[in-house]
């Protein structure tokens, strides 16, 4: 599903990694661990075409990652960035905009409430702005967007860092049960204590 062939990446003339090979199969749950500053986030940014490798080939779902395929590729990917960089907007308006844009014929607005209950978020949060909620709430709003978009590939960068233990358990179990290809970067032990996960230790 995702394949890296001898990928080298430089950012601002500094080498982040070189000769990286990596394969993630369809529906695999792939956990990447390693010290911070090693380029784990850059790896996700490469998959999204936000960074360009200096050399090597990246293929996503059979498509070489290049400018002609980038639209097709991004369409399949849900990305949850570490800081959940949502633009400043009232949450329900943002959700509506995202859904109406991605599902022009029938935006699944009704599903919002079911997911809110699962994520243990109050209804009232929809009227708040993305900047005014806590880190844990932002992470869950981010996941809510992922569940609504329902894209086949998920890239999650520290998705549970601001959640309490019970929530970490609940969300990791649910995410790992999804019928999707998922790459997770996380220091949280909940992710690796699950038999479904392939662990890639980065050194």
């Amino acid at each position: 599903m995702i394949s890296f062939e001898s990928i080298s990446l430089d950012i601002d003339d500094a080498q982040i990694f070189s000769g990286l090979n990596l394969y993630v199969n369809e529906n695999e749950k792939f956990l990447i661990q390693g010290r911070s500053g090693m380029g784990k986030t850059s790896l996700l940014r490469l998959i999204l075409g936000f960074e360009q490798p200096k050399s090597g080939h990246i293929t996503i779902n059979g498509l070489p990652l290049d400018k002609t395929n980038i639209y097709q590729i991004r369409k399949q990917i849900f990305y949850l960035s570490q800081d959940i960089d949502l633009k400043d907007e009232i949450i329900i308006r943002l959700l509506t905009e995202i859904l109406e844009y991605n599902f022009p014929s029938e935006p699944p607005l009704k599903k919002i409430n079911n997911h809110l209950t699962f994520l243990e978020l109050p209804q009232g949060i929809l009227q708040k702005r993305t900047r005014d909620i806590s880190g844990g709430e932002r992470q869950r709003i981010g996941l809510l967007i992922g569940l609504l978009l329902d894209r086949p590939i998920w890239l999650l960068d520290e998705p549970t860092s601001s959640l309490d233990d019970a929530m970490k358990e609940k969300i990791s179990a649910h995410v790992l049960s999804l019928n999707k290809t998922i790459v997770i970067i996380s220091h949280d032990p909940v992710w690796k204590n699950n038999s479904k996960v392939t662990i890639k230790r980065w050194s």
């Binding site: 369409k75 959940i84 960089d85 633009k87 967007i145």
Partner: peptide, 20 residues
């Protein structure tokens, strides 16, 4: 820039992501 890129990943359309 991060905010723009995140919008780009959600909308998959440059113009839509640039609107703000």
């Amino acid at each position: 820039e991060k905010e723009y890129l995140y919008s780009l990943s959600l909308f998959n359309n440059r113009i839509q992501a640039l609107k703000p």
